[in-house]
């Protein structure tokens, strides 16, 4: 069976969930061979094997941390030459898309970004994409070269499928441009203890209606009562009330949780772009005409300062 390369997103050996989803999708197209780079690369193997990686190609070098993107492209390029895969799958982060694009260009292949599903087809893997603020769904394929496809988080269920996961170090020669962009400082994000926005089953978001950083406590309390992640509209982020990492929408994160609760958010097209594929959508807004109500399964027309605390209390009571 043909091999499919899966680029591993990990932090010091801890594999992030979207990579495990990629392994599920990769198995539909071929045998997953993972590529893990940088510090802790070999530590990823046990997890990757549990979810279906037949092989884990590893390479450690300081360049991956010290310089932007190109060293990773060089490595993935070397892996493609070593394996001759049927496809290459990369998680759809900002960096993932850049790595994938440069790789595709080097190997004379087409690239598809932000797939939300992937299946085998007669002429190679077929990717489903969600476009125009998720109002259309398209099916595309790469018509030249080895398909390079980036996949959004939450595009497949993580399924255990134990495989050998044999660790194999591979050789990488860095290109002349590998050291072009130096990372001179790095400040890791502080963890909030809440679930990761793109991975959470429930997302509770606040917008301009929350009216101040101090009031985001209300949104956080509701989120905590449900074990949810906290999101924000760009209006709330631009006002400085909540960090940009929590922004939902076109220029923030795309989320597709089981439940999305929007409070004080009007539902502009750019916000919808990041949340309209959520399974169940709930909104609280004092304006009955707000476009967010076109999307909801349940909506409350009312003041969020009354509705949200009452909801939080009621949830706590019911949960006991």
């Amino acid at each position: 069976m043909a091999e499919v390369l899966v680029y591993v997103d990990h932090v010091d050996g801890a594999v992030r969930k979207p990579t495990l989803e990629l392994l599920t999708l990769a198995r539909r197209v071929g045998e997953p061979v993972a590529v893990a780079l940088g510090d802790g690369a070999a530590d990823t193997a046990a997890t990757l094997a549990e979810y279906g990686a037949v092989k884990v190609l590893t390479h450690e070098a300081a360049e991956y941390d010290d310089y932007l993107v190109v060293p990773k492209v060089d490595a993935l390029h070397a892996a493609v030459e070593a394996v001759s895969p049927a496809a290459v799958l990369v998680p759809s982060s900002g960096e993932g898309k850049e790595i994938a694009a440069r790789l595709a260009l080097r190997i004379g292949s087409g690239i598809i970004t932000d797939a939300v599903d992937l299946e085998a087809g007669d002429e190679g893997p077929v990717a489903t994409q969600s476009v125009f603020a998720a109002s259309f769904s398209t099916k595309s394929r790469v018509s030249k070269g080895t398909p390079v496809i980036t996949v959004k988080p939450n595009s497949a269920a993580v399924e255990a499928a134990p495989a050998a996961g044999a660790v194999e170090a591979f050789a990488v020669t860095f290109s002349e441009n590998a050291t072009g962009t130096k990372v001179t400082a790095r400040a890791p994000r502080e963890s909030t203890g809440r679930p990761e926005l793109t991975e959470a089953a429930i997302v509770v978001s606040g917008g301009r209606g929350v009216n101040g950083a101090e009031n985001f406590g209300l949104i956080e309390a509701l989120a905590d009562s449900l074990g949810a992640a906290v999101g924000a509209s760009r209006a709330a982020v631009d006002a400085g009330w909540y960090p940009h990492t929590n922004q939902v929408g076109q220029t923030g994160k795309s989320v597709s949780p089981q439940l999305y609760i929007a409070s004080g958010i009007s539902g502009a097209i750019q916000h919808r772009a990041g949340m309209q594929t959520s399974k169940t959508i709930v909104a609280i807004n004092k304006d009955a005409e707000a476009p967010i109500f076109d999307l909801v399964d349940y909506g409350v027309v009312g003041d969020l300062f009354d509705v949200v605390p009452q909801l939080t209390e009621e949830i706590k009571t019911r949960k006991g």
Partner: peptide, 28 residues
């Protein structure tokens, strides 16, 4: 082009949900 789009379908509109006005019990 290195890619082809085989099909494009409009996402079905979401079915209209329930909308209530808060008269003191909206949160509940």
């Amino acid at each position: 082009a290195y890619t082809v789009v085989d099909s494009a379908a409009e996402r079905p509109a979401r079915t209209a949900g329930t909308i209530v006005k808060d008269e003191g019990e909206g949160g509940k």
